[in-house]
Nucleic acid binder design. Sequence first.
RNA 1: UCCCGAGUAGCUCAGCUGGUAGAGCAGCCGGCUGUUAACCGGCGGGUCGGGGGUUCGAGUCCCUCCUCGGGAGCCA
Length: 432
Amino acid sequence: MLTRHWISELPAHVGQRVAVHGWVMTTRSSGRIAFVVVRDGTGSLQGVIGKADVAPEVWERFTSLTQEACVRLEGSARADARSPGGVELSVTDLSVLGSSADFPITPKEHGTAFLMERRHLWLRSRRQIAIMRVRDEIIKAIRDFFYDRGFALVDTPILTGSIGESAGTLFETEYFDLGKAYLAQTGQLYLESACAALGKVYCFGPTFRAEKSKTRRHLTEFWMVEPEVAFSTSDDNMRLQEEFIAYIVARVLDRRKEELKELERDTSKLEAITAPFPRVSYTEAVAQLRTKGSSIEWGSDFGAEDESRLVEGRDKPVFIFNYPKSAKAFYMKENPDDPRTVLCNDCLAPEGYGEIIGGSQREDDHDKLLARIRHDGLAEEAYGWYLDLRRYGTFVHSGFGLGVERTVAWVTGSPHIREMIAFPRMMYRLYP
RNA sequence: UCCCGAGUAGCUCAGCUGGUAGAGCAGCCGGCUGUUAACCGGCGGGUCGGGGGUUCGAGUCCCUCCUCGGGAGCCA
């Protein structure tokens, strides 16, 4: 029995007889010669067979292969420039390990509704594979970035009793005799507690928003990474963000060239992503927008159109900082230089990808925080533990949240966030 | 929740001011020794999203419901 090798290992076995297992991507035949391309997750390989070179039953088996059948190919590995990947297999025998009749996703055009209904099979497509590889690289880069800088990963609960922020709609479930529980839409408040224990921390997990959003930028379940740093001001926070984003982009450029090529990503756009990023205060931004014809009033948040105007013509992400208190969450620290505003920032990605980060310095004054909780009409008793952090050694601290799927969409140059996660959860999609 | 748009062959779509449905691809059969979404010839394939209405006649016009897509709001 020949030894099975992963396709990626074959360059080291040129000239040898090997076996490969994989799924059939395409077949082509030309009378007396036939080709098959198989994929095993490490790469793809073209197998060639000549009718005159093998027994008739082997030829018959080869020419009747169907798309996505799982097969074992045996033959000799050969360097061949005509073959994609440079190595080719001269097939001497083959067997079907798992048959596949009428695979629904043919190598022709399909709409996304059709493909999403078959997401479990769509994942096998080249483009989807490339996206999943880039996502994996981004996640590994995120973990390395924080680990290398002494951050501790702290996993925060997904089932929560209190409501994280005032804004947003939460998924609800019954929780034994304790009433309602909610799926977390942020780990931040818990992370602030851990921050007082470990100094530099982050959480990274799924987060849930029950908003009835139907846009290319929204999922109901998405992954968010949230660092929190003790003794860090809003300025420090933005410096961390730009270093972080530049690191992620550089890492993908370095290690996922093949995938970016498969995705036809214009990498010059990514090469431009170096710190520092431009910073515009909210107040400045409003003034700029008004000269460009926007009807925005100071005090309200930017609409989608305003947001794209702010990024227009820039080749780097841009920070918008210090928004009006009324437009932001209760936990953000009041700006001592302008108490109408809070110390916070959004980070808008270039090329129209919009907000990928929201961050802030946190309110560390007990009484001001309590006043905000009351002002926003939040259930005060649910925040007792959170207020405790301001009673026992309160401290300056800041953090932010980065949306993983939005980041993957930007880095891969994809028009829609739903392909950035294996099984997207959207308002009208719970299957597969 | 609101505003647009779309549901016609397995897939992607065309079908004009109403006259009883068409293309490309896929599939199947045949041909071709180097193909890269191969190519050439042939064949089969439809309750036009559901229901109701107008009309001699509806894929086409009207009403209604369903499903999906995009956007707004909200946010990562």
